[in-house]
Design a protein around this nucleic acid. Structure first.
Lengths: 193, 193
DNA sequence: AAATACTATTGATCTATGTCACATTATTTT
DNA sequence: AAAATAATGTGACATAGATCAATAGTATTT
């Protein structure tokens, strides 16, 4: 059950067998049913989770009461509220399973231990965060310069499968547009063909 | 001339005197005149820069030809095109001095050496990137849910000094609105008072 | 000192997207 | 299987902010 984790880690850093064995020992598996929450806002985020199976969304509810999806997390990705995890402050994000999930959780103490014993993990996480930063910066620019249609087209080009797994109104929320606008964009696109 | 660098690093990680001496030896000072570029798009980003003095902007020109400012970098901040620096691909960002700047550059080989000799730098950079990620995520959410006025108000609340140092049309670009809209927002605000 | 290039404001108009309301169809839950 | 709930689509209308255009003040450069 740790194959995917192993694969993802060794894409970025080299690990001996013993090291990975130790690494494994620091994680606790957790199943999370659809619609259940890994984290609710105002809780403190105590774990980072690796997604073995399933799909989750991280979202925020703004002052006006609207929901904004920050991220979908698929198999092989990590999910947590970094800010809360690091600072110990209450989380800003809600993290909800959109499908039945199998996760591997690592607590903060385990994480610290892991970093101490296998310093290469520092590097691995730096790379993860860097990649996330680059993606988020691109989304920010896109939010300024792309039309609703462009945002949608780019998304389905990159993650065509997401359409089969996530309801449209959540895709709209992820793109920063309303579900009505997305619905119109989609019907225009099918007309064009 | 390395006081600010020392201060910023030791806010996050502990360094012995020898370690910092080594660290210093890996940086090369560079002065950059106003309006000169630290990096032009399509160049490969060969250095990370620490801003000792001055102010720079990182911006992108999108397919439609409009400019979007991703970041202002002030004294005590780091600036580079991470994606290009890490992958060796051509940069997406232009980085331009908005004031005469004094920078400390570190090349990739020096950087690798530094990480190797002082592993705590791995941690330091992870923290920097994490903070940047958190800020960028907040801006993304704000771009979805804040009005032009709210975006402006939040900015001047956080960085009141920026108004004295950056022309308004660049602030507009940073906020993802047009200069005309910013101008109207500002005149409404002064009317209110 | 004149010329050129930035910078900011303000008005008129346009448009993409949001909002509200209702209808329809899937999907869960009991 | 029925009832309840969630998801999607579509029309009518409203609006924040963009675009276009003109003006004027301020710095730089020559």
């Amino acid at each position: 059950m740790f194959e995917l984790l192993h694969q993802k880690i060794t894409e970025n850093i080299a690990l001996s067998e013993e090291e990975f064995a130790f690494c494994k020992s620091q994680f606790q598996p957790k199943k999370l049913k659809k619609k259940r929450f890994l984290l609710g806002e105002d809780e403190v985020c105590k774990h980072i989770a690796f997604v073995e199976k399933g799909l989750l969304r991280s979202y925020i509810i703004d002052e006006k009461g609207s929901e904004h999806i920050l991220q979908f997390s698929l198999e092989g990705w990590w999910v947590s509220d970094m800010a809360s995890y690091l600072t110990g402050e209450p989380a800003q994000y809600n993290i909800e399973a959109l499908e039945d999930c199998e996760l591997l959780l690592i607590s903060k103490p385990s994480w610290e231990l892991l970093l101490e014993k296998i310093p290469a993990f520092e590097r691995y996480f730096r790379i993860l965060v860097e990649n996330n930063l680059i993606v988020t910066q691109r989304r920010l620019i896109a939010s300024f310069s792309d039309t609703a249609e462009e945002k949608y087209q780019k998304l389905i080009q990159k993650f065509p499968l997401i359409l089969q797994r996530v309801p449209l109104h959540m895709i709209a929320s992820y793109l920063g547009i309303t579900r009505e606008t997305l619905s119109r964009v989609r019907s225009q696109l099918t007309d064009k063909k």
